[in-house]
Nucleic acid binder design. Structure first.
Length: 297
DNA sequence: GGAAGTCAAGTCTCG
DNA sequence: CGAGACTTGACTTCC
């Protein structure tokens, strides 16, 4: 089992998401930001290795505005040395890297232009992982999108688009249950028709469990991961106390964390992304080693 | 020079 | 039907 966190290291103050606003996005600025993001990514991976954290989500702004026409950089060529070095380091230490495009990346929109832009964002994320030389266990996590008042039709559009994606994108795509529209059972329905693996998020599940018994859902979710996909990935977070449901807490609640760890481990090996606002500081707070919380094999 | 307002994108909910 | 939430640092404008 590997463990990790997304995008930003609070402990080192480094982030893979240095960005700018569109108006200020000159090639020089975009180049400088990308260089800084890659340098920070390199340092974050070094820092993570020292702590034994082998999972990391790269921020979608690592190459700012990469899927937008304003970015005309040939970033694969310009940063080939940095990308090669980062990829070699990650592979040498058996790290697993990922992307998680945000709320604006919607593959099932009725608007073809929105779908086209979503595919552009996925294509850029895949191109970045390709440039690092990472295998297909390194994934791009997305949600299923909106419902538009007609869930079956919306899910049908997702399946249609996902199955016609070119192979270099589809083999990296994985789908996650969300807190509002699509529960694990919906993601499984899509997975059966697309072959896409399913990421299980405990906090989204709490807000939107949908039909099915939890252990049955987990068994089916874990089974969606084939050998080429690597071991299943799960997202863990605790509810922020006193905040609206679905808000991530600063830290993981240790008892809840242990309970989910034990439950997931019944279905086989897996990797865990801790989505806490304190990021790696939240992982450190679970020290000396969260893996010792697992029952002995 | 510090505070406040604004910033690519989509969808849903609330008033 | 329009505003706000989602999330957040960076940039611009205003005082």
């Amino acid at each position: 089992m590997r463990i990790g966190y997304p995008c930003v290291s609070r402990l080192t103050g480094r982030t893979t998401n240095h960005e700018t606003i569109l108006r200020a996005a000159t090639p020089e600025k975009l180049r400088a930001l990308a260089r800084q993001n890659l340098a920070d990514l390199r340092e974050i991976l070094r820092h993570n290795l020292a702590h034994g954290w082998l999972l990391f989500r790269i921020g979608s702004s690592v190459i700012p505005f990469a899927s937008h026409p304003v970015n005309t950089l040939n970033w694969q060529a310009e940063f080939r040395d940095e990308l090669t070095d980062i990829g070699a380091f990650a592979r040498q230490h058996d790290m697993r890297l990922s992307f998680h495009p945000g709320q604006y990346t919607v593959l099932n929109s009725p608007d073809p232009e929105i779908v086209r832009r979503a595919i552009e964002e996925i294509a850029y994320s895949a191109a970045f992982l390709d440039a690092l030389g990472m295998d297909t266990t390194c994934k791009i996590v997305i949600h299923l999108g909106g419902t538009y008042g007609d869930k079956p039709a919306a899910l049908g559009r997702f399946v249609e688009t996902a199955t016609t994606l070119r192979d270099s994108l589809r083999r990296r795509l994985v789908i996650e249950n969300d807190e509002r529209c699509y529960a694990p059972a919906d993601a499984l329905w899509v997975s059966e028709r697309t072959g896409l693996p399913v990421v299980f998020d405990n906090l989204h599940y709490a807000a939107n469990p949908g039909p099915g018994a939890l252990d049955d859902l987990l068994a089916r979710v874990f089974a969606t991961w084939k050998p080429a996909d690597g071991v299943p990935k799960v997202h863990f977070s605790s509810q922020a106390p006193g905040s609206r449901p679905g808000h991530h807490a600063d830290y993981a609640h240790p008892d809840e964390f242990r309970d989910w760890l034990v439950r997931w481990s019944r279905f086989g090996d897996f990797d865990l992304m801790l989505e806490a606002k304190a990021k790696d500081a939240a992982l450190l707070a679970l020290s000396p080693d969260p893996l010792t919380l697992l029952p002995a094999p």
